[in-house]
Write a protein that binds this DNA or RNA. Structure first.
Lengths: 152, 152
DNA sequence: AATGAAACTAGTAGCCT
DNA sequence: AGGCTACTAGTTTCATT
């Protein structure tokens, strides 16, 4: 995979802001014809630079008004215990993000639910039900100051 | 804004997974013609249910190999101090996310940088340089188990 | 590695049911 | 509110430079 040049980065910048921008519009903005823009995008998709095109929704308008950051430590740190936890997490649609982190806890989750009742149910009946889940700590998101994925 | 029906949710599910899916392809998958699909999408864009179409990149392939979660508390909690902090954060391209949270700290940031040198520079020369920034604690992301925005 | 044109495919709007 | 049709616009490939 060759390095990204200036035009590639310009194209990525535009696509990050609007994944549905047409190739024609991109080509006008970066001062190329449609052919090279089309080829560059295809190349970046194939090389994995472009991971996915996604649509962001307004969380509260689709009934996900509460966001919670949730720290989890496992009781055991065997390979098996970790794998079971990960398998459980991947199946839970409430969990948007799961990161392995340094420090006191093993995992950090970002959880999106409708309200506190639903979060309580998630905590008690789903998360704590996974084998080996030890300490769990919840931090509630009160406001979103910034939320972007714009890497370049 | 009328509530979302089953077809709307089906369309949103598809667009969340692939924002560049054509209206024609969506219409085939949800068993409608292009006209109502086009109208439903337009309506959901206008009502704000659909916030944005974005492209996700492979962070390490665009030179952002290190992700850090960073907790910040302010020394003062006046309206002015908070606004200055937010203004600074919005300008820093390294900061992908900034949430106001419950608990010991005021803000949680998600920061994407190339490497530890760049993070050190961000911490010392950018973040700590904002007036009123008090305690800062960094948690390093060692792995990504799950990372999605799929709300419905 | 880009251009321009040609062939194909999709988006959009009006009209009908 | 959804389908059909016709028109407009975008995508994709190819010959050419």
């Amino acid at each position: 995979m060759p390095a990204l040049d200036k035009k590639d980065l310009e194209i990525l910048k535009l696509l990050q802001q609007n994944a549905r921008m047409t190739i024609k519009e991109i080509s006008e903005k970066v001062h190329l014809s449609t052919t090279p823009v089309h080829e560059r995008i295809k190349r970046m998709e194939e090389s994995g630079v472009i991971k996915q095109y996604v649509t962001l929704l307004n969380a509260s308008k689709v009934g996900k008004g509460l966001m919670v950051i949730c720290y989890v430590s496992l009781r055991q740190h065997s390979k098996n215990a970790g794998e079971k936890f990960i398998k459980g997490i991947l199946e839970m649609t409430e969990v948007l993000e799961c990161l392995t982190i340094s420090g006191e806890f093993d995992f950090m989750l970002k959880v999106a639910v409708a309200d506190m009742d639903e979060y309580y149910n998630f905590h008690v009946n789903k998360l704590s039900n996974i084998e080996n889940v030890g300490n769990v700590q919840s931090v509630f998101v009160m406001g979103v100051v910034k939320m972007t994925q714009q890497l370049v």
